[in-house]
Design a protein around this nucleic acid. Structure first.
Lengths: 202, 202
DNA sequence: CTAGACTGCAAGTAGGCACTTACACGCACC
DNA sequence: GGTGCGTGTAAGTGCCTACTTGCAGTCTAG
């Protein structure tokens, strides 16, 4: 513990893990310090508050989300490929974060500080996808008889519930390899068969 | 407050609402008592513990779930009709409960008591649906190339995410009428188009 | 080798928490 | 009219929590 270089990061890592499992209210600063292998006092010296830790964690998540949004489709990709890739990215990111985002999304209702941080991130993501979907409804690749917002909701419902189920049901937190998990492929296939127009299916 | 008749129920109602919003750890017994319009001491006289309240709430939820499971398909109904009805029931039940079940599902990870109570409810529900789906895969009404468990997951993902989104995004907790909400119909239609075999699709 | 930044350790504070105790009031039933 | 039962009120207990203070050690930079 002598090196000063990564103390802050270790604290945030520990906090993220604990918040994801126990929620914000259910996590004690002592537990964070212990998990980080750091003295509790150090917590308050680096981050002013318990909320300060959360705040720092929030900006971290925001950066990750930004990265996700930035991953626009390369032109060579089909809509189907883009969406599947997005689904895997979403799931991987969420699971890697120990479902922090989902958990905090709930806490946001009661801890105003969290609400501010998570801010418009989730709705914005959904709106962004809806826009993308609407474009491809216009080109006839996706069904036009379903509201793009509903379609986006279904998409995120698919990915978030994949993660939720594995948390709630206590399954292994991370399958061997998300990028090749057949379950995701099937789940996505179901979504795609429902979302695409007839000629685009299969 | 003189009448003794419904004190226990009022306490449970208040607790359910608060647990749903603040989580178990984030809810104080004082807050429950206040919301129920009851003295805090009464809480401990009726239910031994804070956990006791949760326990009582758990059996309540279990009964609701039981009611859901019992609603087997009348013979006259098509698979599609049955699933749509199930979806609406699921959503209505979950939203009526203020998303208590979803919230507690998360707390279950950290509060062992909750885990026991919620117990196998959710997995069982999923398994039951998977069985139902498998039967209709056999008759050729549903696609056989998707694992029935994956299909069940998609179904519950659809319903639970409908509720989640409305919580997370702070939308009105209950649309005017769930049983006629067009959003659900579209969401379900997307699922159905993905799950049914070609000849069954509309 | 000195200065400063970073950390650990021991002890403590004030407040909030779940939960308790003791007493008094009102109501129903016999 | 007395006996319970259910409830309210007041006060308090001990524990845990976020957070603080003071001091000492260690590493790095100049």
């Amino acid at each position: 513990m002598s090196a000063a270089h990564n103390t802050g990061e270790r604290i945030l890592d520990a906090a993220a893990e604990l918040f994801a499992v126990h929620g914000y209210a259910g996590t004690t600063t002592r537990a964070i310090a212990e998990a980080a292998g750091v003295n509790e006092v150090t917590l308050f010296r680096r981050f002013e508050n318990k909320v300060g830790i959360l705040r720092a964690l929030g900006t971290r998540i925001q950066q990750q989300q930004a990265g996700f949004a930035a991953a626009a489709a390369p032109d060579s990709e089909s809509v189907r490929e883009t969406l599947l890739r997005l689904a895997r990215m979403e799931i991987e990111a969420t699971m890697a974060g120990g479902a922090l985002a989902i958990r905090l999304a709930f806490d946001a209702k009661s801890v105003p500080e969290v609400a501010e941080l998570l801010g418009e991130g989730i709705p914005n993501n959904a709106a962004g996808l809806a826009e993308f979907l609407a474009e491809h409804q216009a080109t006839g690749e996706l069904r036009a008889d379903i509201d793009p917002n509903v379609m986006a909701e279904a998409f995120f419902g698919l990915t978030s519930s994949y993660v939720m189920y594995r948390i709630v049901m206590g399954v292994a937190p991370m399958p061997a390899d998300v990028s090749t998990d057949d379950g995701i492929a099937q789940l996505f296939d179901l979504f795609w068969s429902g979302a695409a127009t007839q000629k685009e299916r299969v």
